[in-house]
Computed example of a mutant assay.
Amino acid sequence: MPANPKYLTQSKWQRFAKITAAILGGYFVSVTFHLALASWFNRANILMTMAFTGFILWVALMVIAFLAKSGWKIWGIYLLLTLVFSLLIYLGLTYNPTAQ
């Protein structure tokens, strides 16, 4: 049974934004989140668990991207989260250099 067209995204730009946000944006958020944790806690343990939890988080972020109404809005949220986690990485490496 095919999907009802009224529920599908009509704009090709919105579809492109959602797909790229799901794949690239979700990946960036997932990786920077785990690297931020690794910069504050035991690096080896976090990076080992990242092999599993990183994939789970990435898939969850993909689903969230496709549930969003606007692809550009979800891109903005994912970029903001990536910048926040990048700032946490920087602060973690600055104030906690023993976690390297």
Rank of each mutant, 00 (worst) to 15 (best):
M1K: 06
P2A: 07
P2Q: 09
P2S: 08
A3M: 09
P5L: 13
P5R: 10
K6I: 12
K6L: 11
L8G: 06
T9H: 03
S11V: 00
W13N: 09
R15T: 08
A17F: 03
I19H: 03
I19A: 10
T20R: 06
A22P: 04
I23Y: 06
I23S: 02
L24W: 13
L24K: 04
G25T: 02
G25P: 02
G25V: 01
G25Q: 02
G26H: 04
Y27S: 08
V29L: 01
S30W: 03
S30G: 08
V31A: 07
T32I: 00
T32Q: 05
F33W: 08
H34Q: 10
H34V: 02
A36H: 03
A36W: 04
A36E: 01
L37K: 06
L37S: 03
L37I: 02
L37M: 13
W40G: 00
F41T: 09
F41W: 15
N42W: 14
R43E: 12
R43L: 09
R43A: 13
N45R: 05
N45F: 13
N45L: 13
I46F: 11
I46K: 01
L47W: 11
L47E: 06
M48P: 00
M48N: 11
T49Y: 08
T49N: 04
M50V: 01
M50G: 03
M50R: 03
A51Y: 08
A51V: 13
A51C: 08
A51K: 13
F52S: 05
F52Y: 14
F52G: 05
F52C: 03
T53Q: 12
T53D: 11
T53Y: 15
G54W: 11
F55W: 12
L57V: 12
W58H: 06
W58Q: 05
W58G: 02
V59F: 15
L61N: 06
L61V: 03
M62G: 15
M62K: 07
V63H: 13
V63Y: 15
V63N: 09
A65Y: 05
A65I: 05
A65S: 15
A65T: 07
L67S: 12
A68M: 11
A68C: 12
S70T: 07
S70K: 13
K73L: 15
I74E: 01
I74L: 10
I74D: 01
W75E: 05
W75V: 02
W75C: 08
G76I: 02
G76H: 08
G76W: 07
I77W: 07
I77V: 15
L79C: 11
L80E: 05
L80A: 15
T82A: 10
L83R: 07
L83C: 11
V84Y: 09
V84C: 09
V84D: 02
F85T: 01
F85Q: 00
S86Y: 12
L87G: 07
Y90G: 03
Y90P: 00
Y90M: 12
L91G: 02
L91R: 05
G92A: 10
L93R: 06
L93M: 10
T94I: 04
T94S: 14
N96H: 15
N96R: 15
P97L: 04
P97C: 03
T98Q: 14
T98R: 13
A99Q: 14
A99V: 09
Q100V: 08
